[in-house]
Design a protein around this nucleic acid. Sequence first.
DNA 1: CGACTGATTGATTGTGTTCAACCCATGTGG
DNA 2: CCACATGGGTTGAACACAATCAATCAGTCG
Lengths: 257, 257
Amino acid sequence: MLFAEAACGQVLSNPFIRKLEHAGPLSEDERQALSALTQDARTLAARHDIVPDQDAERIYLLMSGVACRYKTLVDGTRRIVSFVLPGDLCRIPPTNRHGLEWRIGILTRCSVVEVSRAALHDLINRHPSLNRALWWLALAELNRSREWLVNDSRPGMQRLAHLLCEVLACLQAVGLADENSCELALSQVDLADALGISHVHINRILQALRKQDLIVWQRHRLVIPDVPRIHDFADFDPTYLDLDGLSTCPDPVPAGD
Amino acid sequence: MLFAEAACGQVLSNPFIRKLEHAGPLSEDERQALSALTQDARTLAARHDIVPDQDAERIYLLMSGVACRYKTLVDGTRRIVSFVLPGDLCRIPPTNRHGLEWRIGILTRCSVVEVSRAALHDLINRHPSLNRALWWLALAELNRSREWLVNDSRPGMQRLAHLLCEVLACLQAVGLADENSCELALSQVDLADALGISHVHINRILQALRKQDLIVWQRHRLVIPDVPRIHDFADFDPTYLDLDGLSTCPDPVPAGD
DNA sequence: CGACTGATTGATTGTGTTCAACCCATGTGG
DNA sequence: CCACATGGGTTGAACACAATCAATCAGTCG
């Protein structure tokens, strides 16, 4: 009984399981399998890239912390195209003749699990309905990416506000944030590169948001005093995250696009 | 014999088949099945949205023309997040209580095939290896979307140049463009909304690109006099389109992200 | 011929960039 | 313990790219 409770606690605090549950209900079996998959995590220090092997693909599962996917432009600018948050899968393709596709940067101290493709494959073979969950994960990622594109067209203040809303929502989805606040150890430079705005300007936008009591951000803790108000301000509609698994395909045929 | 040749011709000019062949080789069987799927196309007039039904999902397959996926911001701006080009799948989720997720706009006269989820499902059941091809399609789309995000950080001229490079490459991939030119009936306003730049400024950028002999664009025909030069100028590396199917998963377990 | 859409141009304004400091906390080695 | 380096964060001033407003022009279609 005690053991079962302990296991249950582990399962509940497992961000990958928490995340996949948004795709649809999981059976106890599936939860156990996912839990087993994510046993031995290891820690990665901040401000380093994950460098892929020459010809081996890697798949990481983020358990805690924040990483990012980015490219460096010819002028040296770093453009972050997505945050990798707890519960996210992160595939790192092998270096090919053209160089790297994307770089994965660790923004804050992370705990990750390295899973092999074989293990994933095996998982799906044993629990076919997880296939649908993985499709959901990929399509949700596509949606997030497109929403970032839309966000790029908003003026600075709503742009930053929208980003913070999304991060809060994603952390809430895996149980790492409460109703209106979360731990967030990102630097202003990270935010700048994620929004395609200079870090100087980000600083000024943050001040403006603070002045309007839309956010409080101190000592790596972000607090949103009035969530509906900032949602309204930023035109943030969490629907696109599809946390209810609504717009997902009812079967494993996705029509990805 | 004559019949076989005719069928073969049809298959070769079928953009969906052309596109999926980039994910990996298709068997003759698979090609026939895909060809059968895309039999009766119908035509949609430009400058109309595809409006989804109240509670029925639709999946369209674009055979010719250009459509786009967009959202309208609170200030009335239209932001295009992706072009739908021949060979692309385009899922239109049913309207939910929150309103529409994305709108699909027809930019130029299109020929589309409406496929049901059941038909797709059936297709995969009969030809399981097509599952991998569909994963490839979705992941390629994700890559494209992220590349647009990166592109948003480039200065205007390379931004537009990069977009044109991508469109040309995608049309070439389905046999609708030759080495350095293609039919392209997009308006300057469409380009503007796809890049998040005002149409007035797009006009000036186009003039600048023309002045530098990077592009020629007349009567709906885009010509790129020196492809390597514009690639270099725009920092365009077609790798991300993954037209060799290189970075794709070798099996249907994708790790979408 | 209007009416319409798309392209082009000029003038003005403004949001955001760039450059250049400076501050402050933290950590490190002599 | 201080000297110094380092990674944020903050501020000011000058500049630049692009948005906006407004008007004109060129085709095209009913």
